[in-house]
Design a binder for these strands. Structure first.
Lengths: 155, 155
DNA sequence: TCCATAATCTTGACTGACTCCACAAAAGGC
DNA sequence: GCCTTTTGTGGAGTCAGTCAAGATTATGGA
C-alpha cells in the first residue's frame, strides 16, 4: 500500500504544475486543480468546490474563487463564461477550441476549430482595433435533449 | 405646433412596430423600443430604462425587463450577452453580425460577418447536434483605450 | 362611448453568482 | 526553526435579474 496522500497521483501532478507556474503550493490549490483535471471539464466553481472538498475537507467558496482566479491567471485553467450560466472551468490546452452550448440543459461540449488553428480571427475592423481573442459559441440542442423531447421550443 | 406626444415620431414608429409584431401598444413599450432604436445600440437594461423614463416619467426596472423580453421574443430587439457584463440590447437587423468587446472599457462594436452570411456555422460536431446559432465575440482593445494607455495590461 | 377581461405595470422581496474586507493560518526563503 | 508574505476563512455586501401579488390599462365587442 503506497498511497501517499488523499487524492494520490493527481495531487502530486497538480503540485508540480503549480510549482512550474510559479504559484505557491497549497492543499486547496492542488485539490481544485486536480478537480478541474479529473472532471471532463466544464464544471462551475461550486461543483469544483464540492470535488475539492473530498480532499481538503473544508474549503470556502471565497477560497475556491481565489484559487480559480490564480490558476486562470497562471494559464493552468481556462475559464468559460456562458451568458446566463455561472462561469465554468477546464484545463487549458491552448488549442483554441470553442464551445457548443445546449439551449435546454446548458451542457457544454468542446468544438474543434472550424477553420485552421485560429478561426474567425480576421474581423472586418479598422487596423486600430487590437484583436486578441475570438470566442465562438454555438447554441443549439444536444443529442440527449433532442432524444428526450423531439422539439417543442422554437428558440 | 403639431407634436402629438412626448418622444414624437420615434414613438409613433415604435407603436407601428409593436402593432406589426402583434404586441400590445403601451407607453412603456413604445418608450423602451424608441430608446433602443435611438441609441447606437448596446445599452443595458438600466441605461434603456433611464432613456425611456424621459418619455414615460416613471418606469420600473421590472417593467423594463418585461418589455425587453417581450421585444426580444417578438424579434424586434436583439439581446447581446457579454460574459461579465449586463445584457445589452440593440435593434434586430437580422444581418447576423458579431461583436468586438474592449477588454478595458467594455465598449461593444459591431463586426461584419467574417465569412459570408453565416460564418463559422459548420462546427465539427456529430450530426445529432442541432446547431441553431453561432455567436462570435472578438476580445481586444479599442482605439480609444490604445490611445489613452499604450499597453499596460498583458491579458 | 362604455365595459369586461386579459395583458401589462408597480412594488417589494428574493435569488444566485460573485466580490470586498479584516483577521487567522500556512508556505517557503533565510 | 523563525519571520515575512501570500493564502484561506467567514461574513457582509453588490449586482443583475427573477418571482409574486395586487393595481392599471389596452383592446375588442356591445
Amino acid at each position: 500500500m503506497t498511497r501517499p496522500a488523499p487524492g494520490g497521483e493527481p495531487m502530486a501532478l497538480a503540485a508540480a504544475h503549480l510549482r512550474a507556474a510559479g504559484l505557491r503550493v497549497t492543499v486547496q490549490r492542488m485539490a481544485v486543480l486536480a478537480a478541474v483535471s479529473e472532471s471532463a471539464g466544464h464544471l462551475d466553481a461550486d461543483a469544483l468546490r464540492e470535488r475539492a472538498r473530498r480532499v481538503t475537507g473544508a474549503l470556502s467558496l471565497q477560497a475556491t474563487y481565489n484559487v480559480l482566479r490564480a490558476l486562470t491567471e497562471a494559464g493552468l485553467v481556462r475559464c468559460t463564461q456562458i451568458p446566463g450560466h455561472p462561469a465554468r472551468y477546464e484545463v487549458e490546452h491552448r488549442d483554441n477550441h470553442h464551445h457548443f452550448v445546449c439551449l435546454r440543459c446548458a451542457a457544454i461540449r468542446d468544438v474543434e476549430c472550424t477553420v485552421g488553428a485560429a478561426p474567425c480571427m480576421e474581423p472586418r475592423l479598422p487596423a486600430e482595433y487590437e484583436v486578441r481573442e475570438a470566442a465562438v459559441t454555438f447554441w443549439g440542442v444536444c443529442p440527449d435533449c433532442r432524444g428526450a423531447r423531439p422539439d417543442t421550443s422554437s428558440m
